[in-house]
Amino acid sequence: MADISEAPHTERYIFRGGEKACAEADMAFGMNLPREACHAKVTGERAALWLGPDEWLLLGNGFNVQLTALPYSQVDVSHRQIGIQLKGNHAADMLNIGCPLDLDDAIFTTGMCTRTVFGKAEIILWRQDVQTFHIEVWRSFGDYVRGLLAIAQKEYM
C-alpha cells in the first residue's frame, strides 16, 4: 500500500507558446523544456512537465522571468492546484482504480507525465519513480482525489 501525502507548496506556472518562444525560455529558465510528448524534465528542485505541444507546467522557483523577444503566455497557477504524492507498493494499482492509463512501468515509464482522469476528476499524473507518482489536481477536486486514493489504500492493504 502506497502512502498518500500532500506535496509541499511550490510556485507553479503554465507556459504556453511556440517552439521559438520555447527555445528562448530554455535560456531564460536555465533548463530545457521537454519537447518529447508526455515527458517531464527535472533540474534540481525544478521541473517542467509537457502537457501539450504548446503547454508546459513549470514547478518550482525561478520560473518567474520575463522573456523578451517572442510572444508567449505565462500564467501563475500556484494556487490553482495542489500536489499529492503517492509512494510505495501498489501505487500504480491504486491509481488504476480510477485511471484508465496503462501504468506498467515499462509502458508509462519513470519521467513520463500526462493529463488524464482519476474517477471523475482530471489530474496531471507524473511518474517520478517506479513506485512514486506525483499528482497535480485542481484544488477543489483535492478532497475527491484524496478520498478515492484512501479507498484504493484499503484495497491494497
Partner: peptide, 12 residues
C-alpha cells in the same frame, strides 16, 4: 492568432 488561454478559475 498568437494568443493562449489558461484557466485560472481556481487560482483566485
Amino acid at each position: 492568432l498568437q494568443v493562449w488561454l489558461t484557466s485560472t478559475t481556481e487560482q483566485w
